[in-house]
Design a protein around this nucleic acid. Structure first.
Lengths: 249, 249
DNA sequence: GATGTTAATTGATCTGAATCAAACTGCTTT
DNA sequence: AAAGCAGTTTGATTCAGATCAATTAACATC
């Protein structure tokens, strides 16, 4: 579905120092490492995997071996309830790290499903821990990444616990906007990779409510909605809709 | 308020090997360490702090220096919204680690407030990272703790996103019950340290709704409520109320 | 023990979102 | 191009929980 819409490929490598080893600079992990350290890390994360749209990166219950750094594409993570319905716990894009939840018990606690054709780097976790011992700055950075995930989750808790439908959607759109922007895409115009139902699941709303909230924001000329294509016309007013400014990092 | 109710002091030290250094075994951190490693760790976490009921362990916005391991007592963590209301992000008891959210930005992102007179061990984080490099099992365990926090947050997200009031309260009570039980207290009878409003904030409900949910569970003879004193009469039926079994680790 | 204060319960009413239902759009398949 | 299907929008109705309000209970202070 999105294959016809050519999106610029994110490449941070040319705004930092160039690096031979597998474009490692594009990952979230190597921040602040020198070239030698990057090289050590490169030996660990060299294994790449392609996941096509709808495919599973990992499933709940399987043994945890590796973290996955998203090189390109888009994922959702979700937990499956007994009755078959699924609750989406997050949407993840290029540069983000998947699998952090599985460290605690060595078992994956959620499914990770590609919402578009994607590419990940597999990072064997025991190896990552081993080289953390010789590259302290890598360890520190890894701790920050885990901590950031906790902060992000607290933001979502705040959203789910105290915001109403429209505020939730505004927060969600602004969060996507910022993340697209950070990756070099437009902050005011983007394609949603997920369905209304998946958005609803993530935001604690039913799909009809999500749809109505979209329509409402469009009626107020704050955004323009064309199916999955979203255009933010007035980001200031969208921020006002959010209410609590501090949510969802 | 709770000072008149003598609670047995948790002491894991006698069910593991005994240890001289500041009862360190009581903490969550030293799992699986040998005595020498415990000693190294002991030098780092020696500094203790007392926080009396209502006192702040840390505040949003202040610089992050240390994690805090709760030695005794009970805390809530909460984020303050602009309008002055506060959203509770968690309740924390003996053995748990506070401050993990602050690692990402070196700034505390929430307040931690004692709900009863409490005692914590201060753990300077840079020192913890340093000795992690020489005690790999400590590093591994620390990663598991952070990951467990992420899993816990996902459980809360599930609760907030898809459960109704009664299910939320049942889940909350069972979670408390299990945590008290793990610490050697009764799993069927305990005192709530927090108000209905704080419970409501945590569960995404208003205090009246929390109160009604308590009353409903009492009417069904599943629990007995006497203000803050809770007795679980039928834990099986309480579990059934929860619905989704996999939530809130 | 009286008094002010905070917390909890319970009832009545209102409302935002869920649910039920129907129509429509855009893709995919043949 | 037609048919089928998944996803989306929109309307009508229902309901769980919020809000408003009053009462009671627990606790702290003098």
């Amino acid at each position: 579905m999105f294959r016809d819409i050519p999106l610029p490929h994110l490449d941070i490598s040319n705004i930092r120092s160039s690096c031979a080893s597998c474009s490692l600079r594009e990952l979230c992990l190597p921040v602040g490492l020198n070239d030698q350290e990057i090289h050590i890390l490169g030996d660990v994360v060299s294994h790449k995997r392609r996941i096509s749209r709808g495919g599973y990166l990992h499933r709940t219950g399987i043994k945890f071996q590796s973290l996955f750094a998203i090189r390109s594409g888009f994922f959702k993570t979700c937990v499956l309830e007994e009755d078959g319905r699924q609750q989406v716990t997050g949407f993840h894009m290029t540069g983000e790290l998947l699998g952090l939840d599985a460290i605690s018990s060595d078992i994956h606690t959620c499914d990770a499903i590609a919402l578009e054709d994607s590419e990940v780097c597999e990072i064997p976790f025991t190896k990552l821990e081993e080289i953390s011992l010789v590259i302290p700055s890598l360890m520190r950075h890894f701790h920050k990444i885990m901590s950031r995930e906790i902060v992000r989750d607290h933001g979502v808790m705040l959203l789910l616990g105290s915001m109403k439908a429209e505020e939730r959607l505004a927060t969600f759109l602004l969060n996507l906007s910022r993340r697209f922007c950070m990756r070099g895409y437009s902050e005011s115009e983007f394609n949603l990779r997920m369905t209304r139902e998946e958005i609803g699941s993530y935001l604690g709303l039913k799909l009809e409510t999500v749809s109505r909230a979209f329509s409402k924001l469009q009626d107020e000329n704050i955004i323009t909605v064309d199916n999955k294509r979203i255009q933010i016309n007035d980001i200031t007013r969208l921020r006002l809709k959010m209410g609590n400014s501090s949510c969802v990092t």
